[in-house]
Design a protein around this nucleic acid. Structure first.
Lengths: 154, 154
DNA sequence: GTCTTATAATCAAGATACTTGATTTTGAAG
DNA sequence: CTTCAAAATCAAGTATCTTGATTATAAGAC
């Protein structure tokens, strides 16, 4: 099976480049805000989800829960996030991102969001469905593989 | 401009989920190999590029060159990478990933690579072109924005 | 050519962040 | 209601990171 078509190779390259660019982007934002890499990655997830929990953030950043507590202390002190009681589990807390962060980061990413929206608007519905379908299936494969790495079969 | 179509929203969500899943995947692999997050991220870039330089790896990981030297010392000691003289610049070195790493990581990612290849093969050439086009333009936007974050206009 | 300035990588010292293991609180299961 | 599991925190020890200095080489100015 060495007969991979050019169109197939290209999509793999494009997907990889996409991943690389997003890491470099996150680093640039983090440096701008004076954040270390971990804190920056944490905020990048929070800016997508809006709300999360220390456990989930530990999972995403790859930290232990102990380090996560320290990280959240730093981010709370910097007023980028706040801790809220979790109404569904009195052991836990909810982490919310502050307006402070959104407003600080806004000027840096407004141009990108506009550009991405325009890019997306330039495709037909049918094309967008194809793209979404691809990304979703691609992501599901990654998720499946992650499970088998964490919980090996036998 | 609050009239974003559903197909447009879906592609944004799918792109975000894709980014999240790749971070979690990298973490899982890193943990499996007993690597810290930084070292893991470094190897993930090297496994794509095959060869790099300390400067580029510092840029990608978000580390200073000082920390990068220490990181490369660790990875070299673990025999995951090797330093080679750079024939084009006698100040610098080239970092190559070792077979050791590829073989260690292979069993964990073989299934994923197969799944992704099959996924890609399930699309028509026209569809693949659409997807590649989208990813490339999307990436270019991210790269452009990264530049303006690093080198603000005035 | 030679001088100056910039870049690549390294190193040592000090600061920062991370891991481990224990602890507290609460939830879930038997 | 008893026991075990999960969420978050904390303190001590370890690992990693940043800073600033250093060496070697490259690139540009004159």
């Amino acid at each position: 099976m060495n007969s991979k078509k050019d169109s197939e190779k290209q999509v793999i390259i494009a997907a990889r480049e996409n991943g690389i660019s997003s890491v470099l982007f996150r680093n640039a934002i983090g440096r701008k805000l004076g954040l270390n890499i971990t804190d920056s990655e944490c905020l990048s997830l929070l800016s997508i989800k809006g709300i999360s929990t220390p456990t989930e953030l530990a999972h995403y950043t790859g930290l232990t829960t102990g380090s996560t507590t320290a990280m959240l202390d730093r981010l709370e002190k910097a007023e980028f996030i706040r801790r809220m009681p979790n109404p569904k589990d009195r052991r836990g807390v909810l982490i919310e991102i502050n307006k402070q962060y959104t407003e600080t980061v806004g000027p840096f990413i407004a141009g990108l969001q506009k550009a991405q929206n325009e890019l997306i608007a330039s495709y037909s519905d049918k094309e967008l469905e194809t793209i979404t379908d691809f990304l979703t299936r691609f992501t599901n494969n990654v998720k499946e593989c992650t499970k088998t790495v964490i919980y090996p079969v036998r």
